[in-house]
Write a protein that binds this DNA or RNA. Sequence first.
DNA 1: CAAACTAGTTAGTTATACAAACCATAAAGG
DNA 2: CCTTTATGGTTTGTATAACTAACTAGTTTG
Lengths: 102, 102
Amino acid sequence: MPSDLHGLADIDRLIHEPARLALAAILSVVESADFLYLQRETGLTKGNLSSHLAKLEEAGYIAIEKTYRGRVPLTLVRLTDAGTAAYRTYRARFKKFLEKTG
Amino acid sequence: MPSDLHGLADIDRLIHEPARLALAAILSVVESADFLYLQRETGLTKGNLSSHLAKLEEAGYIAIEKTYRGRVPLTLVRLTDAGTAAYRTYRARFKKFLEKTG
DNA sequence: CAAACTAGTTAGTTATACAAACCATAAAGG
DNA sequence: CCTTTATGGTTTGTATAACTAACTAGTTTG
């Protein structure tokens, strides 16, 4: 394999996807967020948000806690350590790409 | 629609895709490049490269000129003005995102 | 003249994002 | 009450996307 253009090739696709990148950006600053808050912030449909969260959870990037607010179900999401690390790495890599190709 | 998280939502997907982002980065600095050069730089398979180029051409981001080197066919690729503009916009937007969420 | 290389395209598979429809419960209105 | 409306999601289906493998076509080399 060639130079792979400044590590662009092994960018984390899971985070690269704009919807998930937005989610990571939000979760990186809030400790934890509920489903509807995330939906409003990202503008995603419920289904879409649900599937993105499932992917992030599968990757171990987020932890999903299903609880109740009163008797109304409530889904709380937070970034795991792995998720935080992945997000940081992604940002660093991309920043480097932008600089190197500036 | 909500805040859309610093314009991340309307990022140019055509350029956002890492393979095409790499292509744009290369083409933004070389005036013109041939197929095999691009293949080696990006590490893409021929088929994959071909389809990415087709998409970029369809969008008017690149111009493809099919010519000959001696009697061997040669495909030359260069960024159009629209492509250059789109690449620049993409970079600016992403940079902004990185800064704002820094 | 056969093998192997150059330069690509086409065809087919797999994965992805996305929206629409659905399900379940709870509160509110008549 | 019991129907509507809202909350909080999941499941399902579909169109697009990326990617690989196989094929085409001509060319050089042994």
